[in-house]
């Protein structure tokens, strides 16, 4: 059944709806005026962003530190978890699935609030470390599921074949399972990276003084009012997103 005119119309309207605000933001990042009335083309806001916006770059650095470290840990633990879940024969797999699905279902704000209360309760100072812990926590289930979905493409007999041919557990792990799940592992890492860089709500609760991340910085700037500098940051982040989406297209099937 070919789609009718109606669904084509809706699709184009939706795509316009998606991109008009984004294009407007991009366009005005090149405006030569502070107010959102088009005056003329200029790179002045980028110049300001690159030369006199120390706090933004500090926040960006924080975001990168957290994103890379949290994604690395989440990917390693998630990969091992997926392998254990796929490989191992043990009771209680259902419980592991439940605690993996819950963080995906429960609203972010609950995760943020509960972690904040937890950190205060155990008297842990809010810092980049608490943000790191929070980011590993919400990325973990994604990492597990992505790697698991990759592993599911293969029948269990592939592991048995490795054993049968004389492999020990370590060899089966490093010579067979890790290589075959590598696209999944990579996808898990990039997914965690994206989630981490994007997260605002959870970070908002577990961040302490001096541990502002880029989304927190953008949030406080937005609260202050619209500013062409935000447009410039947004444009750069969008370019980053597009580059990353194109790069990740190959691995998307392990994500959805």
């Amino acid at each position: 059944m070919n789609p009718g005119k109606f669904s084509r119309l809706i699709t184009f309207l939706i795509l316009i709806f998606f991109y008009i605000p984004i294009f407007v933001v991009i366009m005005f990042s090149f405006n030569a005026s502070k107010s959102p009335v088009w005056v003329g083309f200029s790179f002045m806001w980028y110049k300001e962003l690159f030369t006199s916006s120390y706090t933004i770059w500090k926040a960006f650095l924080n975001s990168i530190i957290v994103a890379i470290s949290a994604s690395f840990v989440a990917t390693v633990l998630g990969t091992l978890g997926a392998i254990g879940l796929y490989w191992g024969k043990f009771k209680g797999k259902d419980y592991i699935w439940i605690i993996s699905y819950l963080p995906l279902i429960i609203p972010d704000i609950i995760i943020g609030v509960s972690l904040l209360i937890f950190f205060v309760f155990i008297k842990m100072k809010l810092s980049l470390l608490t943000i790191f812990i929070a980011h590993v926590t919400f990325s973990l289930p994604y990492a597990l599921m992505i790697v698991f979905s990759r592993l599911q493409d293969f029948e269990y007999s592939i592991i048995e074949a490795a054993y049968d041919l004389g492999a020990t557990e370590e060899i089966a792990l490093f010579k067979v399972i890790v290589p075959i799940s590598f696209p999944g592992i990579l996808a898990a890492f990039f997914m965690s990276l994206t989630l981490s860089i994007d997260d605002f709500v959870i970070t908002f609760f577990v961040a302490g003084p001096g541990s502002t991340t880029l989304p927190l910085k953008i949030y406080s700037m937005i609260r202050f009012g619209i500013s062409p500098t935000i447009n410039a940051i947004s444009t750069l982040m969008l370019v980053g997103t597009i580059v990353m989406s194109i790069f990740m297209r190959k691995y998307l099937r392990y994500i959805f």
Binding site: Y19, V24, D198, F200, I230, S234, T241, S245
Partner: peptide
């Protein structure tokens, strides 16, 4: 692409 775009930026776009 919008799915991967930072959610604050998407909110900001509408404020803008």
């Amino acid at each position: 692409i919008p799915f991967w775009t930072n959610s604050l930026i998407r909110i900001y776009a509408w404020i803008f």
